[in-house]
């Protein structure tokens, strides 16, 4: 009864409590995500000794990064990584999702099996794949190829194939979970749509094109941007496989950052490279968000 008299005050109190509920989580975000990002920007303008800033050097670190002998290679590779991850990483989960949907036997088993690589620790899978791609007779893939009378192949040592093969291992790892999401979306399509299409004389391929694909288009856009962002995080695969080689054929921007920071102990240079990567990501994300918003309107 009193509450009705001063709704505004009550409202404020509830706001306060709400913020208090969210506060611990926001502190964690601030500590683990936001503050380090800002700190990174600050560090990128300083010369450093260990983690301590020594002197403000303006854009010197950025200049060093841009003129680094390996930077252009890493930058170019990023485009190659992105391209291949669009070709392989984006479509494979969709295809898996569609195919498994069309089975009736062992469906649960298929879902489980394709998801399985996803729960394997990435570090363990990188070690395993490095033995799969070993050139020479004892590499696992060459053993298999040999049984079929082919090979031996050079795999990652052929610079034309290094990046596509890395993307394949990444896709192997993550495709299952994305495929499950697509499957759930496909399952929620109303059967009436298919039946209506059938009555209109649409064949199976046409039904896929006009019903299945459009219905997963929305989720696919989200997956696409997540895919591109994940490309900028590629670090351990090229590092453990070939240390960025052969001759820089697979070096990634993040790997270069890791080298500056942890091999050369040059924190300022590492920070400025990661700021550059962040800028690229912010631009990409901005484009994406704008695009989706326009679509919604």
């Amino acid at each position: 009864m009193k509450a009705a008299n001063k709704p505004k005050e009550k409202f404020r109190k509830r706001d306060l409590i709400s913020w208090l509920v969210m506060l611990p989580s926001l502190i964690l975000f601030a500590f683990f995500v936001w503050e380090p990002l800002l700190e990174n920007i600050r560090l990128s303008f300083y010369s450093t000794k260990m983690y301590e800033t020594v002197a403000f050097t303006g854009l010197k670190n950025y200049n060093l990064v841009l003129h680094d002998v390996d930077f252009m290679a890493a930058f170019k590779n990023t485009f190659s990584y992105t391209l291949w991850s669009l070709v392989i990483g984006f479509f494979v989960p969709m295809i898996i999702g569609v195919l498994i949907t069309e089975t009736v036997h062992l469906k649960g088993f298929f879902r489980m099996a394709v998801y399985f690589p996803n729960i394997m620790p990435s570090l363990a899978t990188i070690w395993i794949w490095s033995y799969f791609f070993l050139p020479g007779a004892t590499g696992v893939l060459n053993i298999i190829a040999g049984k079929m009378g082919m090979g031996p192949y050079e795999w990652l040592n052929d610079p034309r194939w290094t990046i596509p093969l890395i993307i394949i291992t990444l896709t192997w790892k993550s495709a299952g979970s994305t495929a499950l999401i697509y499957m759930a979306n496909i399952a929620s399509i109303s059967p009436d749509l298919y039946e209506a299409a059938t009555i209109d004389g649409a064949g199976i391929m046409q039904r896929i094109r006009h019903i299945t694909i459009p219905s997963i288009f929305g989720i696919a856009k989200t997956m696409l941007i997540l895919q591109i962002i994940s490309v900028f995080q590629i670090l351990y695969e090229p590092m453990i496989f070939k240390n960025g080689g052969p001759n820089n054929a697979s070096i990634s921007l993040m790997m270069l950052m890791y080298r500056y920071g942890y091999r050369d102990y040059n924190v300022g240079k590492a920070a400025s490279l990661s700021v550059l990567v962040c800028i690229i990501l912010v631009i990409l994300s901005g484009i994406y968000m704008r695009a989706t918003r326009e679509k919604e309107n």
Binding site: F32, V33, E35, P36, L37, E39, N40, L43, Y51, I229, F232, Q233, L235, M254, M257, G261, V267, A270, A271, S274, V277, C278, L281, V282
Partner: peptide, 9 residues
């Protein structure tokens, strides 16, 4: 923005 970019900080 991947967290790995600011792991040093």
């Amino acid at each position: 923005i991947p967290g790995i970019t600011s792991i040093v900080a």
